[in-house]
Design a protein around this nucleic acid. Sequence first.
DNA 1: GTGGTCTAGACCACC
DNA 2: GTGGTCTAGACCACA
Lengths: 119, 119, 119, 119
Amino acid sequence: MEFRDNEAIYLQIAEHVSDNILTGKWHAEQRLPSVRELAIELEVNPNTVMRSYEFLQKQEVIYNKRGLGFFVAPDADKMVKAYKKERFLKQELPEVFRTMVLLGIKFEDIQKRYEQYTK
Amino acid sequence: MEFRDNEAIYLQIAEHVSDNILTGKWHAEQRLPSVRELAIELEVNPNTVMRSYEFLQKQEVIYNKRGLGFFVAPDADKMVKAYKKERFLKQELPEVFRTMVLLGIKFEDIQKRYEQYTK
Amino acid sequence: MEFRDNEAIYLQIAEHVSDNILTGKWHAEQRLPSVRELAIELEVNPNTVMRSYEFLQKQEVIYNKRGLGFFVAPDADKMVKAYKKERFLKQELPEVFRTMVLLGIKFEDIQKRYEQYTK
Amino acid sequence: MEFRDNEAIYLQIAEHVSDNILTGKWHAEQRLPSVRELAIELEVNPNTVMRSYEFLQKQEVIYNKRGLGFFVAPDADKMVKAYKKERFLKQELPEVFRTMVLLGIKFEDIQKRYEQYTK
DNA sequence: GTGGTCTAGACCACC
DNA sequence: GTGGTCTAGACCACA
């Protein structure tokens, strides 16, 4: 996996994991790949994956059974969705609007691009 | 000036400067505040402002006249605009669309929020 | 290491590093000394070494792996060589020729000195 | 006049003046352009020209008659020539040879380029 | 006055 | 351990 180098790798991994939960690829109570497995797959240091899991555990998106591994929390998908939606609407979207105004980009242009994107 | 602490101060200053150029507040060939002046105004170390100016100079948005100070480059406004537009359309916008699809947010909802934002 | 005081130390360090790359002493993908290590070795401030590495990174001669250090870029040797050759042939050599004409130095004289130099 | 920005302007002006002396454009005892005149011609601050003249005066290439201006010293051409030759042979040339070896440039190649240059 | 460089030392996130 | 950023303060050449 390719990582952007302007953002911490462990956060990108956490994002990757929660995306998988959101899309239903990993369902509630399912066991996540072990830290080592995922580390090998993503070609990163196990410590880095561990940090991602700790991060997600703190948000109660995943939980840990000692000796067994990490598991997707029961309502993980809803939590992730709520969290992302909040962040999107409160932070990202206003920033997008601000940039549009600054650059003089019309809303119609955005609409066209959206239609192309979803096509 | 207040700085977000998730982004380097010198980059925020650079952003601040290029925003001023973009909005026409600082026009081509105009002399920028000296490193020391801006440092005092923004309450940061002169080295930090220096890094911002170096950063912008590298992008040819501003240039330096020995012993005189930094000046806005002739086509700085166009350059900044082109650069920001590129980044917005190629990087930020696709990311927004991706999030919309992921979260199941309808385009009409975005439109409503945009109308509220510009009101 | 001794530094000339008519040129910035960080540039001399960068030159030193790229010379090492050019001569094959440091090969592609090899890890460079850490900022702190090199700073101690050269008896300069870590910030100064950092500036050198930033400078070389900007030119894509070296690159950074987060938390691991700086590494010689894959084609660094070719890049450095091409860069230096360009500078030599387009800038330095014409200047030398110009000086020769100005001072009335014959090419044969240069040739003799070159033979002495390589002896 | 265009100045390189990696070298002090006053030194470039001094070089310009001594080149004129060397080529015989300005002969012994001739009056140099006044500080102000040259400053206007070269579009620099008079202080900068003054510094160039002081620099050349210190080397006894030019001298000053109070109230009348600066004049080319009697043996200026020989002095300049000797000075430049010294610098060229002791400093510049060895550096050129060093670069040639480093880059693997053959002497024959230099010769060809020299013939092209003088053609 | 201007920028440019450097030191000393600190704190931080990250791997 | 690694780099990255920042402060405080200094000295210098230059215009």
